[in-house]
Each structure stands twice: as structure tokens, then as C-alpha cells.
Design a protein around this nucleic acid. Structure first.
Length: 891
DNA sequence: CGGACGAGGATTTTT
DNA sequence: TCCTCGTCCG
């Protein structure tokens, strides 16, 4: 048995498995058998007699956790693995927090707020403080709060930190701290934690309750962390603290695949692991078992361009494989058509199952065109991400009811459902309830269930409706004790009126909503059955039934990645590159390889941002086992307008030896199979075309900071950056797609099911979806027609990269080993530009542009890392420019 | 109070 | 283009 385990491993892998008694850093290149090593190591430990309950394995997705568990179960006798703690950071620590909630002043039934709940609460806080939502943009504020929490900066720590507050003043959001405080207070009152709290509160628990820390240190004597390169500061500190006692921590990761800095992940965590654990053994897994040599070498040739990395030589001893095909299209729709045709050819010609094919893209918005193309060809597909099951209105509504029943303090849930479906309880009434609740210091629910209606100023119809609502919720809450989870869920869906309302409507949307509700309720039953089975197997406590609370806890941390439906077996997978991390497919298509899309415009302000995009591309490419196909479109619809772009620099960065390409990347339009040089967008010829590829000749053109006034390659005018071309001739100048598409496989399983499929939608071909006809591009609308200057909120020059959020005043104060050394602002998310930097321009100012000549600024708006200027150049037209690139001269 | 309608904003990536 | 928010009227 033991032998079997180690036998199938290569020497490097074997070493990494057997040294489980020492802190270990496993650098695992893409496809190097990382999961295999991790699971083998755990299985090996179990076989060596380490009790399962002493092992904690942390992953980033539920899916990864589940897969690892399955694999471990396949390696050893299942009884050995009983009691093993394996899950995502969030789910594991949510579980611990439930057990310890009282110490932190939260109910054990605390609600977990997702990103949109959090944003709503932020918005409420801003309104309550009577702040301007233009200045204090809920999204920015929420991002800043999230950042603070990820860096363990509580409101108190924030208050004690002068530099952070100085930053706020610079960002023109001086009252940020008040919002942060109020937000946290509301969370607490509501008995709720957001995603970031799960990590922050865990840290607070360990900081303030040494006995709790010791308890878990004793429990988790062996800690394994997957995807360590994507841990953020809060996660890092948790791991460190827990590992302090026994020092048996094993982290696995690949710095080349660090792609979550926007979420606070610190690539430094992995880069400095050796300093944190000086006794650590380092194992490098460099042999790629997944991909062909061509793919591995191509990926290496790109990632080499990055400065910051742990050097390692990833190699494949597999087949050389075929070259990477690059496809060019004129529009996004044509690109999708090409991909669909190519997939069809692959499936037909090589007998590849759909399930071995994935189409990856940078942004969710790109999925539409692809879906369309696949659907019209009757090709089965599933799509992950984007609009997930749990974000649908009907689901959020029903979940809010359940939340309220479980946790009556949850005011957000209360507000959401009190008048959903409409039952004639309006804003005024809710306002009165809120006022009464406030003055009594109780929750909204307590107010309606205990206070006298008249005392709240309610009378007549309103009072009656409120009373009826209150009694409904009350009854369901009481039913919790006696009713089975599934029954209760159904009861809630019914008595809330949600089912009835949708049933009455009989529209396609309402039918789909009903199906979704049904799906959700069914998932309670499924969950209950699974749990039942689990308890029977493990022989733990025999529970009569599974409570709806347990299900709810589980559901709050689920994403649509987390379930594979059986009917999704043989389908093409559509997902973002981020979502594809850790997966592999025989054939991988990467769509939208265009400048400003991949790499994303948002990332390009800084060298770090660009390097992260490059890692992202590396991740995308290394998902492929047999072959990869890359594509780009010269124009695509963005915000309902046609915009033009040139091929991604990543295409040129691939060593051309590995490419199968039928045209010149520097001049994609001039390729030979084009009979007629179609009339194109007039600007394209000066911007996209002459400028194309010039960055290759000017080493300093990117990677550094862009400063206005600096010579910047010969991309004069920065025409490629963020400008939406006006006018043009829309689609009519373009040769439409090639036209000869295969009819598409008839049967497949496309037509089988109808409607929405939670966690991974799959639409059927007969379901109509929007079709975008080619159309004339319209002139760009000025961003601010009124020309009003918008005060800057958050948006900092990411080139500076000095965020102080992570620095001082962490919950551990300066005494904690990690606090002082916390890496400074690798994150490019959130934060901001100071007004002074942007204040040089004003509406009405006359400016000169190198290419367009003289113009007048008609609008100024902040943009994530920059300032968006709308300039009227008179005869040349109105342009939208990014300040960073525009290099305007003030006249 | 609630539905209908129109204007304006939005898009990186997610546990 | 799509979605959300605000306004207006029944």
C-alpha cells in the first residue's frame, strides 16, 4: 500500500511527499502533478499513523477541496481519512467561527454577506451619513473596506493610523473611516459577517483568545495550503499563527500562477516563505506531465518576460505536439464563429469529446458572443461564472427569507423581503419601523414582532399588512424546530408568496424563476441526503434531520463552480481564465487576445499589473494538454459600441517557433487572403495600424510608469489606449464571417433540457437569446454632457504602488512578526489618485493633442487608474482619452 | 404605493 | 447592449 502510494511518483514528487514532518515549500509548475503530490502527502501521512483530525488542508475553491478528498479516498481506506479538515479558507474558518461565535459577540447563526450584500450595506451607510454617492462611490468604498480587512486593519486600527487617514484626505474621501465604522457596526447589529470578516474575525479570535488559538494549534498539527501564491495577508497570518506551535506547514504553489492580487493576494507570501520558516525544505516540481512540449515551451517563452519570479525550468517530456494556431477575426462575432467552427472540426475530425474542450476569456462579457455562436450551431456548452445562480433575484429573495427566519437580526434580509413580492408595504412604512427599531435599539424584525403598531405610527392597511408579514415569518421561524429542512424551505418559498407570484405571471422569465426556486429547494434535499449519508458513514452523532441552518451555512460559500450537473458531462466549457485555474483540457481556446482586453486596460498602468496579466496568460495557455488555439478580433462591441484594437502583445511574446500563424502580427489587416482592402475606420489607419507592434521596438514603451510628457515609444497619441473610435463605418465595411459553417451536430444533448441550470448555466439551442446585428457605430457620447467636473474619488496611480493599508496598525499591532514586514501595496485594486495629480485639467480648458490638434475639454471623469477626458477636437470629432496616455498640452 | 418608462452607467478578474 | 436607478402617473 505504502509502496503503491510512492511508486507512481517521480523522485522530486516522492521527496515532497515523504518529508511531511518538516515545513515544506513545494514550488509546483503548471501541470507538474501538484494535486497528486498534495493528496499523496496527506494519504501518506494518514498511512503513517497521523490522525486525520490533526490535518488541515486549505484550498481556494470548494471544488479543489472536493476533488482532493475524492482522490485521497481513492488512495487509502476511507476510514483513515475520517475527520480530516479540508476546505477553502473561508469555509473552514466560517465553521470555526460558528463554534466560537459567542466569544466574538456574534450569534452562531450569523449570516454571511456576499459581495452584493456588502455593497448594499455600504450604500446605506453612505446615505445614512448623508454623504454624496458621487464622491463616495459605494464600489470604491467597499473595495477599500475590503482591502483594509484583508490587511487586518480594523476600524480602530484605521483610526489610529494617521497615514491611512492622510491617504483618505488625499483621495478626497476624508470621511471614509466613518463609513467603515458604521458599516462594521451594522454588520454586527445584523449578526452578519462579510467574506473578508471570515478571515479578519478568525485573526481577532486568535489574537484575543489565546486559549482558542492553542486549541486549534493543537488540533491542526499539520497544515497544508494549496495555491499559496494566492493567499492574502489575512490568510497568511492565520496560517502562520496556527503553524507557530508545531511548525508543520506545507505550502504548495507556483509564483508564475499568482493571479489574484486584485483580491489582495500577495505573491510575496510565497517568495518569502523561506524567511518565515528557515527550516523549510524546498521542493521544485518542474516536469510538466500535462502538456505537449510546444505548449510548455511557448508558455515559458512568455513568462520569461516577467522580472519578479522564482526561476525554475518547467519542461515537458511529452510529445512535441502541434503548433499553436492563431486566428484573426474582424469582429467579436466572427471570432466566436471561427472558434465554434474550429471546435466542430476538432470534434468531428479527431473524435475529441466536447468535455475536453474549453474556451477561455479575460472578461465575462466576452461569453455572450461565444454562447451565441455555439448555440446557433447546436453545440452543447456550459458556462461558468458571470451571472451566477446565486445572484439571480428570485434566489436572493428566497435566500433572504431563509436568512431572516434563521437570523432575525438580519436587517438587510428584512429590508429585502418585507415588500417582496409586493405586498403594499412601502418606503414610508419601513422608515417608520426603522425609526422605532432604532429608538429602541432593536432589530427591524424585533420591532414588528414586539412593538405596538400604533407606537410606530402604523395604522390601517399598513399596520395590518405588517402584522400579517410578521406573523408569517414568526410562524416559519417557529416551524424551524419541528420541520425538516426541505419542507421548511418549501414552506418558506410558498408562504412568502414568491412561488405564487411567479406562477401567476407565466412569462418566460417567471417560469425560469420558478425553476430556479425549485432547484434551490431541491438542493436542500440533496444536501440533507448527503449529510445523512456522511453521518451514517462516519458514525458520528446520529441526527434526526439536517437543519436548514446547516444547509444555509453551506450555501453561503458556494459558487457556481461548485457543482457539476450530470447533464453537463459532455459539453464545451466556457469560463474566464481566472476560473480555469487548476483545470485542464485537451483543447483550449483563448479568445480576445487584444491589447486592452488581454492584457486588460485596467492592469496596464503598472509593471506589476502587466506582469500579473502575463501570468494570467501563462495560466490560460498551460491549461491545454494537446493543443491551444489563440484568437483575437480587430473590433468588438464594448458598451454597445464598436471599438478597435490590435493584437495582444502576448501573441508577439510567444516564441514564433511555436506558432502556426497565417499573417503578420504587426500588420494583421494586411494579410494575403483578403481580396479587398475594405474601407475601415478612418482612425484605425493612423492609430491601430501604424502604431501596431511598435512596442516591440521600444523596450521602454511599457513595463514602466507612463508619465505624461515622457516619450513613449512611437505610439504617439496613445491611440490604442482606451479610446473609443467615433464614427467609422461600423460593420458595413467588413467582410462578414466566412459563411461556410458546419451545420453543427444535430443531436448532442443540446435540446434535452430547458432553462437555467444553476452553477454553470447551459442554455439550450431553442432558447432565444439576444442577437446583436451589425450596426452603424454611433458617435461617442460625451461622458458628462453637462460638462460638470466630477470630483475625484478613488483611483490612484498604481505605478506608485505604495499603499499603506497593509502596514501599521494591523490587529496584531507592530509587535506581530508579520505586521512590520507586510509587503507594501502589491495590490493594484481600489485606491486612488489624488486630485492634485488630476487637477491640472478642467472642463472648458483648451488643450493640444499630438495627433488631433487643438480641442476643448468637455468632460472629465475618473477611471479606475486614471482620468478619462472627453475632448472636442472640432472638425476631427470628439474623443475620449485617458489622461495617462493622452499627453495633452495645455494651451 | 406600485408599475411603467426613460436616462445614465457599466466591465477586469472572485472566495 | 444590458441593468439599475429615479421619476412620474394611475
Amino acid at each position: 500500500m505504502n509502496n503503491d502510494l510512492l511508486h507512481s511518483l517521480n523522485p522530486a514528487q516522492r521527496e515532497a511527499v515523504i518529508h511531511y514532518q518538516e515545513p515544506s515549500l513545494i514550488i509546483a509548475g503548471a501541470g507538474s502533478g501538484k494535486t497528486r503530490v498534495l493528496t499523496s502527502r496527506i494519504a501518506y501521512m494518514l498511512q503513517e499513523g497521523i490522525p486525520a483530525h490533526h490535518i488541515l488542508a486549505l484550498t481556494f475553491t470548494n471544488k479543489a477541496a472536493r476533488e482532493m478528498r475524492e482522490r485521497i479516498d481513492g488512495m487509502i481506506s476511507p476510514s483513515l481519512g475520517r475527520g480530516l479538515w479540508m476546505g477553502t479558507f473561508h469555509s473552514v474558518f466560517a465553521r470555526i467561527l460558528r463554534a466560537e461565535s459567542e466569544r466574538l459577540g456574534f450569534p452562531a447563526t450569523f449570516t454571511i454577506y456576499d459581495a452584493s450584500d456588502a455593497k448594499n450595506l455600504v450604500k446605506l451607510a453612505i446615505r445614512e451619513l448623508e454623504l454624496d454617492e458621487e464622491t463616495y462611490k459605494p464600489n470604491n468604498i467597499a473595495a477599500r473596506i475590503s482591502r483594509a480587512k484583508n490587511n487586518l486593519v480594523t476600524p480602530e486600527a484605521y483610526e489610529a493610523n494617521a497615514s491611512l487617514q492622510g491617504e483618505d484626505r488625499e483621495l478626497r474621501i476624508p470621511r471614509f473611516l466613518e463609513i467603515y465604522k458604521l458599516y462594521c457596526r451594522r454588520c454586527r447589529e445584523n449578526g452578519a459577517m462579510d467574506f473578508d470578516d471570515l478571515l479578519l474575525m478568525t485573526n481577532i479570535l486568535f489574537r484575543d483568545h489565546p486559549d482558542a488559538l492553542v486549541k486549534y494549534q493543537e488540533q491542526f498539527r499539520y497544515i497544508l495550503v494549496d495555491e499559496y501564491q494566492d493567499t492574502n495577508f489575512a490568510q497568511y497570518v492565520i496560517v502562520r499563527r496556527l503553524a507557530e506551535r508545531y511548525g508543520n506547514v506545507c505550502v504548495v504553489g507556483d509564483d508564475a500562477q499568482s493571479i489574484y492580487s486584485f483580491r489582495g493576494a500577495k505573491i510575496e507570501n510565497i517568495l518569502r516563505f523561506q524567511q518565515d520558516f528557515p527550516k523549510a525544505k524546498i521542493f521544485k516540481l518542474e516536469q510538466n506531465y500535462r502538456s505537449t512540449q510546444t505548449i510548455v515551451n511557448a508558455a515559458n517563452s512568455v513568462i520569461e518576460k516577467n522580472q519578479r519570479q522564482i526561476r525554475k525550468k518547467s519542461f515537458s517530456s511529452g510529445d512535441e505536439g502541434e503548433k499553436i494556431k492563431v486566428m484573426k477575426a474582424y469582429t467579436d462575432r466572427e471570432e466566436s464563429a471561427l472558434i465554434a467552427s474550429d471546435i466542430y472540426a476538432t470534434v468531428r475530425g479527431r473524435g475529441v469529446p466536447y468535455s475536453e474542450i474549453a474556451v477561455l476569456y479575460r472578461t465575462n462579457a466576452q461569453s455572450r458572443a461565444l454562447e451565441e455562436a455555439l448555440r446557433t450551431r447546436n453545440m452543447p456548452y456550459k458556462i461558468y461564472g458571470g451571472f451566477s445562480f446565486y445572484q439571480r433575484k428570485e434566489i436572493k429573495d428566497l435566500l433572504a427569507y431563509i436568512r431572516l427566519v434563521i437570523n432575525p437580526r438580519d436587517n438587510e434580509a428584512f429590508r429585502r423581503v418585507i415588500n417582496t413580492p409586493a405586498r403594499g408595504i412601502g418606503e414610508v412604512t419601513v422608515g417608520r419601523i426603522a425609526a422605532a427599531a432604532d429608538s429602541h435599539g432593536i432589530s427591524l424584525w424585533e420591532a414588528v414582532s414586539t412593538l405596538d403598531p400604533a407606537s410606530m405610527g402604523l395604522a390601517g392597511a399598513a399596520a395590518k399588512k405588517v402584522a400579517s408579514f410578521a406573523s408569517t415569518i414568526g410562524e416559519m421561524s417557529a416551524a424551524r424546530a419541528t420541520m425538516e429542512a426541505y419542507e421548511l424551505g418549501l414552506e418558506i418559498a410558498t408562504r412568502s408568496g414568491l412561488i405564487g407570484t411567479y406562477k401567476m405571471q407565466q412569462t418566460p422569465e417567471s417560469i425560469s424563476a420558478l425553476e430556479n426556486i425549485e432547484e434551490l429547494i431541491n438542493s436542500i434535499r440533496v444536501f440533507a441526503e448527503e449529510q445523512q449519508k456522511l453521518t451514517e458513514e462516519t458514525g458520528e452523532s446520529i441526527q434526526a434531520s439536517v437543519s436548514i441552518e446547516e444547509w444555509m451555512q453551506n450555501v453561503a460559500l458556494l459558487t457556481d463552480m461548485d457543482t457539476d450537473k450530470p447533464e453537463d458531462q459532455n459539453k464545451v466549457t466556457l469560463m474566464t481564465v481566472h476560473a480555469a485555474k487548476g483545470l485542464e483540457f485537451a483543447y483550449v481556446y483563448i479568445a480576445g487576445l487584444e491589447e486592452n482586453l488581454f492584457p486588460s486596460l485596467m492592469s496596464m498602468g503598472s509593471a506589476e499589473g502587466l506582469e500579473e496579466e502575463r501570468r494570467l496568460f501563462y495560466v490560460a495557455l498551460t491549461r491545454a494538454k494537446t493543443a491551444a488555439v489563440l484568437s483575437f478580433a480587430e473590433s468588438r462591441f464594448k458598451w454597445g459600441e464598436m471599438s478597435f484594437s490590435r493584437p495582444s502583445r502576448f501573441l508577439s511574446e510567444i516564441d514564433p517557433r511555436y506558432l502556426d500563424i497565417a499573417f503578420d502580427l504587426d500588420n494583421p489587416a494586411e494579410d494575403s487572403d483578403e481580396e479587398i482592402e475594405a474601407p475601415r475606420n478612418p482612425y484605425a489607419s493612423e492609430g491601430s495600424r501604424t502604431g501596431t507592434g511598435s512596442y516591440r521596438n521600444s523596450p521602454n514603451a511599457y513595463g514602466g510608469s507612463y508619465r505624461p510628457g515622457t516619450t513613449y515609444g512611437n505610439r504617439s497619441g496613445g491611440t490604442d489606449s482606451g479610446r473609443t473610435y467615433t464614427g467609422g463605418n461600423g460593420a458595413n465595411g467588413y467582410r462578414r464571417g466566412t459563411g461556410n459553417y458546419p451545420g453543427g451536430p444535430r443531436s448532442a444533448e443540446g435540446a434535452a433540457r430547458s432553462g437555467y441550470n444553476p452553477r454553470g448555466t447551459s442554455y439550450d439551442s431553442d432558447k432565444p437569446r439576444t442577437y446583436y446585428p451589425p450596426r452603424e457605430a454611433e458617435p461617442v457620447k460625451p461622458l458628462r454632457p453637462d460638462g460638470r467636473f466630477r470630483p475625484m474619488g478613488a483611483s490612484r496611480p498604481s505605478t506608485t504602488g505604495t499603499s499603506t493599508v497593509s502596514q501599521p496598525g494591523s490587529v496584531y499591532g507592530s509587535g506581530h512578526p508579520a505586521a512590520g514586514s507586510s509587503p507594501a501595496g502589491a495590490g493594484a485594486t481600489g485606491a486612488s489618485t489624488s486630485l492634485s495629480a488630476s487637477g491640472e485639467y478642467a472642463v472648458g480648458m483648451r488643450v493640444e493633442h499630438a495627433k488631433f490638434g487643438a480641442g476643448v475639454i468637455t468632460a472629465i471623469e475618473e477611471w479606475t487608474n486614471d482620468i478619462k477626458l472627453t475632448v472636442d477636437f472640432g472638425p476631427v470629432g470628439t474623443k475620449v482619452l485617458l489622461k495617462k496616455f493622452a499627453r495633452l498640452r495645455i494651451l
